[in-house]
Each structure stands twice: as C-alpha cells, then as structure tokens.
C-alpha cells in the first residue's frame, strides 16, 4: 500500500508540473503572439498551439485535482450521516470515479492507437499530429483513476479499521 501510494503520488506530481509548465507557457506564448502580431508579423498556428496547450493542461490537471480532493461534491446529505456512512459514500464515489475514468482511458487508448496507425489526424497549419496528445488524454484519465483508486483503498482501510475496533 505504502509503495503504491508513493508511486501514484510521484506520477501525479509529474503530471501536475507538466500542467503548470504548460500553463506558464500558454500565458507567455499568448502575450508573445500578440506582441509579435502588433510589432512584427503574426505567428502562424498560434491558435493551434494554445489549443494543444489546453489539452495538456486540462488532462494533466485532472489527477492533481483528485489528489487535493478538488472534484466538487454535494455534501448536504452526507454531512448529516454518521462517519461510517460517510466513509461508505466516499468508497462509492471513488469506485465510480475509478470505473468511469478507466473506461474513458480505455476508449481513448483505442482512439490514440487509431490516430497513430490508421488515420493520422493533425492540426491544420502546423500539421502537429494529434496522437501524442491522445496519449496524454489517456494518461491524464488513467492517473485520475489511480488517484481515485488510492482514495478508494484508503476509505476501505478506514472502514475496515473502524469495523475491527467495534468488534
């Protein structure tokens, strides 16, 4: 468990810093593109680069958001329940998140492989292929799933411990 936890957290930290760098890059790049258009010449493909930056930033941010428990929930009912019931709800939420993100990662893996081998989609002007970004989507979703798995295991452990205390 400790080992698994450490590995997942390390991977999430890596995706997080990729996202942070991308965000910084986007900010600087948009300013650079505007200045260049005003004073020199427009940059060909500036929109595409921002679009690709968005894909990287969003996908690499999903796991981090899960790590800091940032995916919004409604707690009106849960707050009125016992600790134990809340833990069970946490297990449900984490399990569903894990299943959904894994299914989506699987779907996107097929997309990525198709785009790599059969139908090489690219951006319009710079002709940057989509498939590496498809793989980033796969990784982003998969990491989100792993973070959810971590939460699932932690909550299960919590439930198990409280069970053994009671008995």
């Amino acid at each position: 468990m400790k080992y698994l936890e450490k590995t997942i957290q390390l991977l999430t930290t890596i995706t997080k810093y990729i996202a942070l760098s991308t965000m910084t890059f986007m900010m600087l790049f948009i300013a650079f593109a505007v200045l260049s258009r005003l004073f020199f010449s427009p940059i060909v493909g500036d929109i595409e680069l921002v679009q690709l930056g968005m894909v990287v930033m969003i996908m690499c941010g999903l796991a981090y958001t899960q790590q800091v428990d940032g995916h919004i929930t409604i707690e009106i009912l849960a707050n009125k329940m016992s600790k134990r019931a809340q833990t069970i709800l946490d297990i449900l939420g984490a399990l569903l998140t894990f299943c959904v993100t894994l299914a989506f990662a699987y779907i996107y893996l097929e997309v990525a492989i198709t785009h790599q081998n059969d139908m090489r989609l690219t951006t319009n002007l710079l002709e940057i292929p989509f498939y590496p970004f498809d793989f980033i989507i796969v990784i982003g979703l998969f990491m989100w799933g792993l973070e959810a798995l971590l939460k699932f295991l932690r909550s299960c452990l919590l439930l198990f411990q409280s069970n053994s205390k009671e008995s």
């Binding site: 500036d46 929109i47 319009n124």
Partner: peptide
C-alpha cells in the same frame, strides 16, 4: 486565414495571414 490552402493563397497575394477563429 482558416487553413493551409488559404494561407498559401494569401501569401501569394502579398497579404499577411492572420489566424482568427
């Protein structure tokens, strides 16, 4: 300009291509 071929056409005309959605 919205794509590659428009880009080439505009450059041939001597204009400055600007990408805008």
């Amino acid at each position: 300009m919205s794509g590659k071929s428009e880009n080439a056409f505009i450059e041939a005309l001597g204009g400055t291509p600007v990408s805008i959605t």
